[in-house]
Design a protein around this nucleic acid. Structure first.
Length: 121
DNA sequence: TTGTTGACTCTGA
DNA sequence: CTCAGAGCCAACA
């Protein structure tokens, strides 16, 4: 269980990302709005996902519809390949069409079941 | 405790 | 389209 506030925050982020269906993507800011943190922090949470996790971290991209570049360099290519395998199309600028493939959110039922209050939105 | 860094986003040029 | 600056906040030295 979460021993601290920040651990609880990360767990909320991961639980939410696990709800993103194949073929859809969410943005860091979208995740951040729901769990109640900043876009930067949700990005940091993705960087902290351990390998072999069941969290579909590759379905989280930036607000421009592009794969965010890492510090280390590698990783973007793998993320792009995983998304292609789920049917996403990338244009010449390496962007997906967010209007078509962006996730519409977890839904009220899931939110209520996971401790979120309606007045948060 | 202070300073730097980063898988972000928005605005403006 | 690209680029720069400001705001953001948890992690780390």
């Amino acid at each position: 269980m979460a021993a601290t506030q920040t651990e609880a925050l990360y767990e909320r982020i991961y639980a939410l990302v696990r709800e993103i269906p194949p073929g859809r993507v969410a943005t860091y800011g979208q995740i951040a709005r729901i769990v109640g943190c900043t876009a930067r922090v949700s990005g940091y949470a993705m960087a902290a996902v351990p390998g072999g996790s069941d969290v579909p971290w590759h379905r989280v991209i930036n607000s421009q519809g592009k794969i965010s570049p890492r510090k280390g360099g590698g990783g973007e290519a793998r993320q792009k390949r995983l998304l292609r395998e789920e049917g996403l199309r990338f244009d010449r600028q390496g962007r997906v069409k967010l209007a078509d493939v962006q996730w519409d959110g977890p839904g009220w039922a899931w939110l209520a079941q996971n401790g979120y209050e309606p007045d948060m939105f």
